[in-house]
Write a protein that binds this DNA or RNA. Structure first.
Lengths: 201, 201
DNA sequence: GGGTATACGTACCGATCGGTAACACGTCAA
DNA sequence: TTGACGTGTTACCGATCGGTACGTATACCC
């Protein structure tokens, strides 16, 4: 007997892998409510799967958290590079674009800051899988900001790069602390003032 | 039979109240390792008391956390006012003194940032007892920084005050993320540049 | 000495934590 | 036809979570 033709194409009918569903849900819950605040039971329940499925795809909750942050990392650099690519050869405009975007995001009602930063606060112990991902992300961000400060022709590129990083981290935190109308909305303006004051005359 | 004379004076022999011991230990553990990470069992064990003693002095763990933060709040403003009082009538020097101190603290090996900020990250839910204390502290800090910016004669006092707050929060976070040699050590320098760029010409 | 208030400890509670063992089922390719 | 594989199901694990019922020891006042 001839086999029945599939109604829709195979890649459309392919059910989402359990691991993917879990990561999607975990990502959302971890970001919004914190990693420690969310239990694995809630994750599998919301994902419509069962606990053994979670532990077939991820060796532990800590590693699931690290996976969430690795995905967050990719998306972060996508956003960052988007601002960079919008202004080729103009690092000051690149920073301005990136910060304008952050400033806007921080003014959204349910803004919860940077997943990386939050994870590092939740897990202060050295060597925690989630913290390792977070630290690597921040190191790289620092490196890039300093390089951009140098490309701008700053008097002291490392100081300016670090100053920009402080403003950014401050915006992440203030965004979730103050909500609408908080200090984070002025991050781009303050960064611009700081840059102006740091350039070679 | 005649009662035995006390060897030392009564107020020296008075044992520390259980509630005080608990708060001391909780303060240390909550700050260093996070509130969610510490269970009440560990607190009472380290304090050398028992669980019912904790719940006689504090209605819940959440309220214990709030008490920790209220004490943290008092000590925070002590440090802040110390910097302010060291330079009467000179808000710019007051800020500089305060930030120099923060910059130094962030370079200590086991620096863990601001207890207020960390608590707000750990408890994103509106209305949590710990978060309420934290938010109030930050609101007041923002108010004071804006007032000091105005007293300095800034072009836009609210923007400068908020910029200083962003740098401060950034220093708290970066201090615990990067450890020694991190961006937080440049907070005073960057604040000074930002102030210089914000004053009326 | 007797009463009382305060402070503390022993032992326990149900719920939830992260994680696992054992087995049934369906799909797909060889 | 036959596995291999991924998944779901159910039931369970020991540990820890925040919180409490209840009895006891001590100090002080009358």
């Amino acid at each position: 007997m001839k086999s029945i033709e599939p109604i829709i194409s195979p890649d459309e009918v392919t059910p989402p892998r359990a691991g993917e569903k879990i990561l999607r849900v975990a990502r959302d819950l971890f970001y919004r409510r914190g990693i420690r605040a969310i239990g694995v039971d809630e994750i599998v329940k919301r994902a419509g799967v069962t606990k053994p499925s979670l532990y077939r795809s991820f060796p532990s909750k800590d590693e699931l958290a690290a996976s969430y942050l690795r995905q967050y990392d990719l998306e972060f650099w996508d956003r960052f590079d988007e601002a960079v690519n919008a202004h080729p050869g103009n690092p000051r405009a690149q920073i301005a674009a990136f910060l304008a975007r952050i400033g806007k995001r921080t003014q959204k009602p349910d803004y919860r800051g940077c997943g990386m930063t939050n994870a590092a606060v939740e897990y202060p112990e050295d060597g925690h899988p989630a913290r390792i991902v977070s630290e690597a992300n921040k190191q790289e961000l620092r490196r890039r900001l300093r390089a951009m400060a140098a490309a701008m022709g700053a008097n002291d590129p490392d100081t300016l790069g670090d100053g920009l990083l402080l403003l950014i981290e401050g915006a992440y935190i203030s965004g979730q602390l103050f909500g609408l109308g908080g200090p984070a909305k002025s991050v781009a303006r303050n960064a611009d003032l700081l840059i102006e004051a740091s350039l070679k005359k």
